[in-house]
Computed example of a mutant assay.
Amino acid sequence: MTYSDRAADFAALHQPGNPLVLYNIWDAGSAKAIAGAGARALATGSYPVAAAQGFPDGEKIPLDFVLGNAERIIAATDLPVTIDFEGGYAREPEQLTANVKRLAETGAAGLNFEDQVVGGDGFYSIEEQAARVAAVRAAHADIFVNARTDLFLKEKDASQHGSLISEALERGAAYAEAGASGFFIPGLTDPDLIAKVCEASSLPVNTMMRGITLETARQAGVARCSYGPIPHAKLMQVLAEHFQFLE
């Protein structure tokens, strides 16, 4: 199967109302476990990948390790794999394109690409982030660019999320025009607001499964459901509890 075929197969899994479920993994071993359980595709999470190697989240783990880890995961199964690439490990478009080209060379079918300033404050402006999305798209015509807005994740007061919908949709439209393949809205948990985004977005919508159920996501028209750091956190809890039981 060619890279283009794998990327196309991955894109086809994004169906509103019948979402692709991604129980995020962090290494080749966890990838094989989830693949063996019947997954249709695999996705890393930046936090578990970093935490599994003793690094904090937020592009603190070296890019070379991220790429090597991606290669090992992709080699471990026949499933399409998407990589949480955070902010692309660069600000300027030229370096972003170069970094994503390296990611595509690992065989990754897709990537997450966020609009918060990693290691800084706030968000990239809509114009700058759209230019950054275009730079990511320039790296490869077929890679699935899951453009993530952190508006809802950063606003801890869920009662304020309704006031952010207009900007979120503006960002999603700009990212779509710049070449994004999907729109990720982690942190948004209100079913009516999720449905509003799904209805208005020209891109398939991805939610994080913290505070919502799969049935809620389906009814809202979500096309992709990601569990982010939850699987890794649950496994670490089991390990700690088991050790306590031994003592």
Rank of each mutant, 00 (worst) to 15 (best):
T2L: 09
R6I: 04
Q15S: 05
Q15Y: 00
P16D: 02
P16F: 04
G17N: 07
N18H: 14
N18W: 02
P19M: 09
P19F: 11
Y23D: 13
A28F: 08
S30F: 01
K32I: 07
A37D: 12
L42G: 10
Y47T: 09
P48N: 12
A52Q: 10
A52N: 15
L63D: 15
L63A: 13
V66L: 15
I74C: 04
A75Q: 14
A76F: 11
T77N: 03
P80W: 07
D84N: 04
F85E: 11
G88S: 13
E92M: 11
Q95M: 10
Q95E: 14
K101A: 10
L103G: 12
A109C: 14
E114N: 08
Q116E: 05
G120H: 09
F123H: 15
E127I: 07
E128A: 14
A131T: 01
A134S: 07
A134R: 12
R148F: 00
D150L: 00
D150F: 00
F152A: 07
A158Y: 00
A158Q: 09
H161F: 05
L164G: 10
S166W: 00
E167M: 05
L169G: 02
R171E: 06
G172N: 01
G172C: 03
G172T: 00
A174L: 04
E177S: 06
E177P: 03
G179W: 02
F183H: 10
F184T: 10
F184Y: 14
I185C: 04
P186S: 09
I194C: 06
A195W: 00
A195L: 05
A195P: 06
K196N: 12
C198F: 00
E199T: 15
E199H: 10
E199N: 14
S201W: 07
V205T: 02
T213E: 02
T216V: 13
Q219L: 06
V222S: 14
C225T: 11
P229A: 14
P229R: 09
P231M: 08
M236I: 06
M236H: 03
Q237Y: 11
Q237V: 12
A240H: 13
E241P: 02
H242F: 10
E247F: 04
